[in-house]
């Protein structure tokens, strides 16, 4: 009965854009949905956009770390993008460093990172077919 956070698929990347203040149950549901979708779609990357989140407490922070670990086990890399400055400063004070979670300033850079990581893996520099342009390379 609670809302669920939508998981979108773009190429081989799953995109999660969190737009509402998260209830704990939604966080747990998201963790589950995402694991299922990674397996179902064979996604190689996950981008979680938290730019709309006004706060990230230890519960959500832990969820981000868990999702990163789970998706790594399933062969996908997670990038958390769009963390607000005030949120980052609060997390530092809280003592949560999100170790092991890859982060990027915004969606564009997050996707760019996933692309270049995949290119390195495939050994094909600059190979970007079938996935959105990173923007960073076109500047």
């Amino acid at each position: 009965m609670t809302e669920r956070v939508p998981v979108l698929k773009i190429g081989d990347v799953l995109l999660v854009s969190i737009q509402v203040d998260l209830e704990d149950q939604m966080v747990l549901d998201l963790q589950e949905d995402l694991s299922d979708r990674i397996v179902a779609t064979g996604a190689r990357g996950v981008v979680i956009d938290i730019s709309a989140l006004e706060i990230v407490d230890s519960f959500v922070g832990r969820m981000l770390a868990t999702i990163a670990s789970i998706s790594r086990l399933l062969g996908a890399e997670t990038v958390v993008v769009g963390m607000r400055p005030a949120v980052a400063m609060t997390l530092v004070e809280l003592g949560l460093s999100l170790g092991g979670v890859r982060t990027a300033l915004n969606l564009e850079q997050g996707l760019g990172y996933l692309n270049s990581a995949r290119d390195k893996q495939l050994g094909v520099p600059g190979f970007t077919a079938g996935s959105p342009d990173t923007g960073a390379e076109t500047r």
Binding site: M83, A88, L91, V92, S97, T103, G110
Partner: peptide, 8 residues
């Protein structure tokens, strides 16, 4: 550390 968490 805060900058790192934002991806910089």
């Amino acid at each position: 550390v805060a900058a790192r968490m934002m991806g910089a």
